[in-house]
Amino acid sequence: MSFPGDEIDELTSCFAGLSTASEGGTAFILIPAMNLPAGCDPKTADALLCPTPRDGYPSRLFFSAKISHQGPGQNWNAAGVVILSRQWWAVSWKAQDSNKRLSAILASHLEAFRSCKK
């Protein structure tokens, strides 16, 4: 599976070193050392976005470590799962995906880590 070029370009313009990879027919987007929302500890982590259905979610966002934060996404129900030969962690978060643009899906997942909800 390949991602729309303009959507990858949009993300690449913001996230240096972004790359794509696939495993078992599922495509992922890897963002190294992504800056996390304020209040997160650590402040940066590698992120792995799976923008297609997985584990019963319409999309998932994994991190290279468990993130301490004050946002609403506190249920870390994926811990140390191995994808692309690395361990990843993810919170239970059903990102609303009416806008299926990659950047929108990523932004929606980051809402789980923001302490100030609108």
Binding site: C14, Q74, K94, D97, I105, A107
Partner: peptide, 14 residues
């Protein structure tokens, strides 16, 4: 500038 919108995600299960 690049903007993107998304619905508020309230789908967390704790």
């Amino acid at each position: 500038e690049v903007f993107v919108s998304h619905p508020q995600s309230a789908g967390s299960s704790r």
